[in-house]
Every structure is written in C-alpha cells, then in structure tokens.
Amino acid sequence: MVNVMLLLHVIGAAGMGFYLVLPFMIGRASKLSGTGQGGLSEGLLVANRMAQYFLILQFLTGGYLISKGDYSVAWMIIIVLLFLGIAAVGGIVTKPLKQIKVSIEQGQSATAHISKARTLSFIVWVMFIAILVLMKYTF
C-alpha cells in the first residue's frame, strides 16, 4: 500500500508542477494584447483549478505516508504549514486571474491584476520549492 501511495504522491507532485511555471507565464501576460491576456488568464484559471485538485491528492497521500514514516515533529509542522500556505495562496491567486479577464472585457487595463497575480504566484513558487527541498532532505 505504501508503494501505491508513493506513486500517487509523485503523480500529485507532478500535477502541482504547474506552480513552478505559473509566475513566468503570468509575467508574459503583460507582453500580450488584451484578448491574449484574457485567454491566458482563462487557461491559467483552469490549470490552477487542476493544481488545486492535485493538492487534495497530495494531502491525502502525504498524510498516509507521514503516518508510516519516522519524521521529526518540527519537519511535519513545517511541511503542513507550507502545504496550507500553497493551498491558501494558490486559491487567492484565482481572484486576480479572474479580474484580468473581466478588466479586458470592460476595456480597462489589467496591469494591476497581472502584477498582483504574479506576486502571489511567486510566493507559491517559493513555498513549493521549499517543500521540494524538505521532501528530499528530511530531518
């Protein structure tokens, strides 16, 4: 059972890999035309929703794997806090991504929303990198 859960956990991590490219994709949005920005934001919204589902998979499989391993309490607390941070900020980034499309449809500038989404996605990127490092180097 541990091997099946580990496989699902790795698949979930691959699905969350979207968060590694998100800040860079949002950064390209400012170089696109208005309709391109709207289309990109729609695509990023769908991909973010899928990454959120992979987060659920990570939560379930990670909880099982932690229960079967021998990890320090400090490591477990740090991992859970980073995981919750990714889930929270990954959900928060949805609003500015939606507002990009709305701004474009109303003929307004979406620069502020793009900037906010890029900042939030960079925060998720940092937390995701931290989790990857901590998964490799447990204590």
Rank of each mutant, 00 (worst) to 15 (best):
L120R: 05
L60F: 14
F18L: 03
S103P: 01
F54Y: 11
W125T: 03
L7P: 00
G107W: 09
N48S: 14
M5Y: 04
M135H: 10
S115I: 04
G15R: 01
K98A: 11
G39F: 06
K136G: 15
T138C: 02
I11G: 00
L60Q: 01
H113C: 01
F54E: 01
S72D: 12
G15Y: 01
V73D: 12
Y19E: 05
A130W: 03
A51H: 04
L20K: 05
N48R: 02
L44A: 05
G34H: 09
L132P: 01
S115M: 10
V21R: 08
G38N: 09
G17A: 04
F83T: 02
A112M: 08
L8F: 10
K101Q: 12
M135C: 10
Y53L: 11
G36L: 11
T35I: 11
I129L: 14
A47E: 03
G62L: 07
F83K: 03
F122Q: 04
M16H: 00
K95A: 14
A29P: 01
Q58W: 02
K116Q: 13
V2M: 07
A87N: 06
S33V: 06
G62Y: 00
M76I: 14
V80A: 15
D70S: 14
G38I: 06
G15F: 00
A110R: 03
G85C: 00
G91R: 02
L22V: 01
F54T: 01
G63Y: 08
L44G: 02
T111N: 13
V133E: 09
L84A: 14
L97N: 01
Y71F: 15
V80G: 04
L44C: 06
A87M: 12
T119N: 10
I78T: 14
P96G: 11
K31R: 14
Q58R: 04
T138V: 14
M5N: 09
Q99N: 15
F18W: 06
K68E: 15
V73R: 12
V93E: 09
V10S: 07
A74Q: 12
E42A: 10
L97T: 01
G85D: 00
L8Q: 09
Q106E: 15
K101F: 05
F59H: 01
G107Q: 08
M25Y: 07
F54N: 02
Q37F: 06
A88E: 09
V89Q: 03
L81F: 13
F24A: 11
L97Y: 04
G34R: 13
A112E: 15
S72L: 05
G39Q: 10
F24R: 08
G69A: 15
M50E: 06
F59R: 00
F122D: 02
T138G: 07
V80K: 07
G85S: 11
H113S: 12
I100G: 04
Y71K: 09
I131V: 15
F128K: 02
